[in-house]
Design a protein around this nucleic acid. Structure first.
Length: 429
DNA sequence: TCTGGGGTCCTAGGACCC
DNA sequence: TCTGGGGTCCTAGGACCC
C-alpha cells in the first residue's frame, strides 16, 4: 500500500460527550442523577441516548420505548422526549470550551470533536486530556471522555477505552507502540471506526476479529478485498494519518427535513401542511449557509411496521433558477406532492430534500435576479429569518403550514427549554 | 396505541459518444 | 447480421457514521 506523503507524526484527540442527551437533561434536573434515564427519538419512538443505569438493564440502543417503559419505571427511571433546542445549545457551550485547548478544532457531530494537538508532544498528553475533561465538566456540567493518538481512527479507539475502563479516569493516550498494540488487541474489529456490519461479517469470515489483526493484515488482502475506504482505515490503524482534520465546517451538499407523524394521516390537506412546514425548515437551513438549491425531492411513506397496503414513493424536480425563496419552494413542493399523493393510504411520514446545492456567491451574475438574490424577495427572507431567530421559530410563518397541525409528532415527555426560552430558565430555590 | 432523523462517500451499472 | 472497446457522465443504492 502506498504511504507516500502520509505523516506518522500527527497527534489528535477525540473528545466525546458521555450519554450526551441524557447528560444535558441531568445538567438541569438533578433528580435524574443516579437513576435510569433514556431520551427517545422524535415521536417518542426509540431510545437514542441511554444513561449507564439503562445500559446496565441491558436495554439496547435504538430499542422501541414502549417495550421497555415498564421495566424502566420499575427501576425508578425516566423516559424523556428529545429536546433538540436544549442539546444544540449545550453542544455549542461544550465546543466553545474545547476551542480554548487547541487552535485546530473540528466539530464532528453534536457531541464529538477532534482536537489537533500536533506540536503538543512536550506535554503530558494524558494529563492534558484530563484537564480538558475537568474543565468541560465544571463549566458546562457535561461529562466527556478523551482519547489521544496519532490518527483519528486510533483516537476513536483510545476514547472508547477511556470511556469503558474506569482506571483511565476519562482520558487515554495511545502513543507508544506497546500501548497501541495492547488497545488494538482488545478492540473487536467491528468497533473500529469505518467498519460497519457488512465489513465486520466479511472480516470475521476471514479470521480477522480484532483491530490488531486488521492492522497487521497482508497488503495483498487489503488490495484485493477492501475498498478505498477500507484502505484508509487500515493505514490509520498503522498510524498514518489519512483522514485530515477539517476545522472549517463545509456547506451541506444536501439538506433533508422529514418527520414521522404523530398519527396516521390520509388527507391530502394535512400532508400539504406538513410538507409546507418541512420546506420552511429546510429552506432556513439553505439560507443559513448562504446557499441555493438546484434540485428538490418530496417523499411520502406509509407505516412499514403496520400490516396493510404500503406506499413509499418520491418525486423530484430541477429548480431553475436555483432558489432558497421559501414561498416559491413551497409552491413547487405542493405541486409535486399533489402529483405524488394517492388517496386511500394511511401515511406515516413525509419529507423533503434539497440537492445540487450551490453557494449564493457562485450563482452566475446573469441569474442573480431570477434567483431571487438581488431583489425584495431576498430582503423579505432576511427579515423573516431574523425575526424567527430572535423571537422563536414560526413567529412568522406561512399560511400553507397550518395552525392546528394535528399531524405533528408526539413529544409528551418533553423537558423545559432550560437554555433557550426565558420562561423555562431554571429557578434557584 | 407506540418502532428516528440527517448526513457523506463510494461503486456499479446504464446511457451515450466516438 | 454482426455488434469492439474505451471514455465520460449520471444515478441509484449500498455502506457507514452520529
Amino acid at each position: 500500500m502506498n504511504t507516500t506523503g502520509l505523516s506518522r507524526d500527527n497527534i489528535v484527540a477525540l473528545v466525546d460527550c458521555n450519554n450526551f442527551y441524557v447528560s444535558c437533561e441531568r445538567a438541569f434536573n438533578p433528580d435524574l442523577a443516579g437513576k435510569p434515564v433514556a431520551v427517545l427519538s422524535n415521536n417518542d419512538g426509540c431510545l437514542v441516548s441511554r444513561s449507564q443505569e439503562i445500559k446496565d438493564l441491558k436495554i439496547p440502543m435504538g430499542a422501541p420505548g414502549f417495550k421497555y417503559e415498564a421495566l424502566i419505571k420499575k427501576h425508578g427511571g425516566t423516559l424523556l422526549s428529545s429536546n433538540y433546542a436544549l442539546y444544540g445549545d449545550m453542544s455549542a457551550r461544550v465546543m466553545e470550551v474545547l476551542s480554548m485547548f487547541t487552535p485546530d478544532l473540528e466539530i464532528y457531530s453534536i457531541d464529538e470533536a477532534f482536537l489537533g494537538l500536533t506540536g503538543f508532544q512536550t506535554r503530558d498528553l494524558e494529563e492534558y486530556g484530563r484537564k480538558i475533561k475537568h474543565t468541560v465538566q465544571k463549566w458546562t456540567g457535561i461529562p466527556v471522555s478523551v482519547g489521544i493518538s496519532r490518527t483519528k481512527t486510533l483516537a476513536k479507539i483510545a476514547n472508547h477505552h477511556a470511556k469503558k475502563i474506569p482506571a483511565f479516569k476519562g482520558s487515554l493516550c495511545l502513543m507508544t507502540e506497546e500501548r497501541i498494540e495492547k488497545a488494538l488487541e482488545r478492540t473487536p474489529v467491528g468497533e473500529v471506526w469505518g467498519i460497519g456490519r457488512q465489513y465486520d461479517k466479511f472480516l470475521r469470515q476471514n479470521r480477522i476479529e480484532t483491530a490488531l489483526q486488521l492492522r497487521d493484515v497482508e497488503d495483498k488482502f487489503v488490495d484485493h478485498y477492501m475498498t478505498s475506504v477500507g484502505h484508509k482505515t487500515v493505514l490509520e490503524l498503522r498510524g498514518y494519518a489519512c483522514v485530515d482534520l477539517d476545522d472549517a465546517p463545509s456547506a451541506k451538499k444536501s439538506i433533508v427535513n422529514s418527520r414521522s407523524f404523530g398519527k396516521q394521516v390520509s388527507e391530502l390537506s394535512e400532508l400539504r401542511e406538513a410538507v409546507s412546514n418541512y420546506i420552511t425548515r429546510a429552506a432556513e437551513k439553505l439560507r443559513k449557509q448562504k446557499s441555493v438549491a438546484g434540485h428538490m425531492m418530496v417523499f411520502l411513506s406509509t407505516n412499514r411496521f403496520k400490516e396493510g397496503p404500503q406506499y413509499n414513493n418520491s418525486i423530484s424536480t430541477t429548480l431553475f433558477p436555483p432558489s432558497a425563496y421559501t414561498p416559491e419552494l413551497i409552491r413547487i413542493a405542493l405541486n409535486l406532492l399533489d402529483e405524488l399523493y394517492l388517496p386511500g393510504f394511511e401515511y406515516k411520514k413525509a419529507g423533503v430534500m434539497f440537492a445540487d446545492i450551490m453557494s449564493e456567491a457562485d450563482v452566475p451574475l446573469s441569474f442573480i435576479e431570477e434567483c431571487y438574490l438581488d431583489d425584495k424577495r431576498k430582503q423579505l427572507m432576511d427579515i423573516v429569518d431574523k425575526l424567527n431567530r430572535k423571537h422563536g421559530q414560526d413567529t412568522l410563518f406561512y399560511a400553507s403550514s397550518g395552525i392546528q397541525k394535528n399531524w405533528q409528532m408526539r413529544r409528551v415527555r418533553l423537558s423545559p427549554y432550560y437554555t433557550t426560552r426565558w420562561n423555562d430558565l431554571p429557578k434557584v430555590k
